[in-house]
């Protein structure tokens, strides 16, 4: 009898053990999970917050005479070994720039132009299908506002052998704002996030 009970307990333990770690939702506000060698959402949050802090403190977005600057997102190069959507950084930065009341982003140019439907609407206006729409609701010509500033940047990675068993991975986040009229650079910032861990861990 005792043997049967013991076997039953062993079976239960084995079944539970084989089920692996349970899935849990991450506490996105107070996450105290371990660091990872790759880039996770906390790294992007930290980099974006540092960029926004620097940008607002610099006063570069203050338009003399009032009003908002019109800004376009230029190329944000991912030069890391990871498949990163650079919007993980830029969506946050753009959102806060717009919410600061100093910038209006344009979807008529740059990275966001493709999916913005700005040109599809105009193509449709100029096609036969345009006749199906109320003319007053279609955009007239020469209504688009050209950008005054552009934001561009780069995320790159350096892997360094720290010692026999440890590697060091450095991630560089760089952003810069350029005045499109004069070509002068208004602002630029770099945030470095460094990680040190086992050589067996893969950072891509």
């Amino acid at each position: 009898m005792k043997l049967k009970t013991l076997l039953c307990i062993c079976l239960c333990v084995w079944v539970i053990g084989c089920s692996g770690p349970t899935t849990k939702n991450i506490d996105m506000v107070n996450d105290q999970g371990k660091a990872v060698m790759g880039l996770d959402y906390r790294d992007f949050d930290q980099a974006a917050a540092a960029m926004i802090d620097s940008l607002i403190r610099s006063g570069s977005l203050h338009k003399p005479g009032g009003g908002r600057y019109v800004m376009v997102t230029g190329g944000i190069v991912n030069d890391t070994m990871q498949r990163i959507d650079t919007d993980q950084l830029m969506a946050k930065v753009e959102q806060e720039m717009m919410n600061s009341g100093q910038v209006a982003m344009t979807s008529a140019m740059g990275d966001k132009a493709g999916a913005s439907m700005v040109y599809e609407t105009r193509d449709m206006r100029d096609s036969d299908r345009g006749d199906e729409f109320n003319e007053d609701t279609l955009p007239a010509k020469k209504q688009l506002i050209a950008p005054e500033l552009s934001i561009s940047g780069k995320i790159f990675q350096r892997n360094i052998k720290y010692d026999k068993k440890t590697q060091q991975v450095e991630y560089y986040f760089q952003l810069r704002i350029t005045d499109l009229t004069t070509g002068l650079r208004f602002w630029q910032e770099e945030k470095v996030i460094g990680k040190r861990g086992s050589d067996k861990m893969v950072s891509w």
Partner: peptide
């Protein structure tokens, strides 16, 4: 609510 409300080391 802002994107800058994150834990800063």
């Amino acid at each position: 609510p802002t994107k800058t409300s994150v834990w800063v080391p």
